[in-house]
Simulated scan of single mutants.
Amino acid sequence: MRAVVYESPRRVTVRDVEDAVVEEETDALVRITSSALCGTDLHMYDGRTGAEEGMVLGHAPLGVVEETGSAVTSVRPGDRVVLPTHLFCGTCPHCAQGLTAARSRIRPDGFGAAYGYAGMGPYRDAQAELLRVPFADANCVPLPGVPGDRFEDAFVLLADAFQLP
């Protein structure tokens, strides 16, 4: 698949990378239709975050679910979704208390997990054709509308703000 990849400070390229796939029964695979850019992307672009060469950039994505793991119940293939930038499991004691920033299951080696942020876990970002969404039941927010309309574009600006308790 094609993706926007960090090469070095102030240098990004579009290149082929390994396809995203469903790795766990709680994952979804989403075909990205829109993705926003924010200041964090610019910090990485400028070389101020410790981003490593080869890192897929971009976040605040929207897309269409292509595949789900066997344990996913809230979305199915064909559903249009918005994806919060920061990842959480939705089931650990921290999430149960509404403390989704603690994220003890999604990143046991530290706090904070996000798509394509330097130092925030091994998750690729959304400037790519496909995105693996871990803990899809917590991290896929279904969108209203009918397939094929462009109503979802209104939601791209909200993707970075969506954090579910």
Results as ranks from 00 to 15, higher is better:
residue 14 V to S: 14
residue 140 C to P: 05
residue 30 V to I: 12
residue 47 G to A: 09
residue 40 T to K: 07
residue 50 G to W: 11
residue 3 A to C: 11
residue 29 L to S: 03
residue 38 C to R: 08
residue 48 R to H: 13
residue 161 A to E: 12
residue 15 R to S: 13
residue 142 P to Y: 11
residue 84 P to Q: 07
residue 79 D to Y: 04
residue 100 T to F: 08
residue 44 M to F: 06
residue 9 P to W: 14
residue 110 G to K: 06
residue 14 V to L: 14
residue 160 D to F: 11
residue 82 V to Q: 01
residue 28 A to P: 01
residue 165 P to I: 06
residue 56 V to H: 02
residue 12 V to K: 08
residue 58 G to S: 11
residue 153 D to I: 07
residue 89 C to E: 00
residue 68 T to A: 06
residue 83 L to R: 01
residue 156 V to P: 02
residue 131 L to I: 13
residue 84 P to L: 08
residue 46 D to M: 08
residue 95 C to Q: 03
residue 88 F to L: 03
residue 17 V to Y: 05
residue 132 R to S: 02
residue 3 A to Y: 02
residue 87 L to S: 01
residue 110 G to Y: 08
residue 154 A to L: 11
residue 41 D to R: 00
residue 113 A to I: 05
residue 147 P to D: 15
residue 32 I to P: 00
residue 91 T to Y: 06
residue 86 H to L: 14
residue 51 A to Y: 01
residue 156 V to S: 04
residue 124 R to H: 08
residue 154 A to T: 11
residue 63 G to C: 10
residue 158 L to S: 09
residue 61 P to W: 13
residue 103 R to Y: 10
residue 21 V to C: 03
residue 52 E to F: 09
residue 31 R to F: 10
residue 118 A to E: 06
residue 31 R to I: 05
residue 79 D to H: 06
residue 164 L to A: 15
residue 66 E to A: 13
residue 77 P to R: 11
residue 65 V to Y: 01
residue 129 E to P: 04
residue 105 R to D: 13
residue 128 A to W: 03
residue 79 D to P: 03
residue 111 F to I: 15
residue 59 H to V: 05
residue 14 V to Q: 12
residue 99 L to N: 15
residue 135 F to S: 13
residue 95 C to A: 10
residue 30 V to C: 08
residue 72 V to H: 00
residue 28 A to K: 01
residue 100 T to K: 03
residue 126 A to T: 03
residue 36 A to F: 11
residue 130 L to F: 11
residue 28 A to V: 03
residue 140 C to L: 08
residue 67 E to Q: 13
residue 135 F to Y: 15
residue 64 V to F: 11
residue 2 R to H: 10
residue 4 V to G: 02
residue 1 M to D: 09
residue 152 E to N: 09
residue 72 V to F: 01
residue 83 L to N: 04
residue 128 A to H: 03
residue 58 G to K: 01
residue 142 P to A: 12
residue 90 G to H: 02
residue 124 R to W: 00
residue 36 A to R: 07
residue 82 V to N: 00
residue 121 G to V: 03
residue 142 P to L: 07
residue 159 A to R: 00
residue 141 V to I: 15
residue 58 G to R: 00
residue 11 R to C: 05
residue 70 S to C: 12
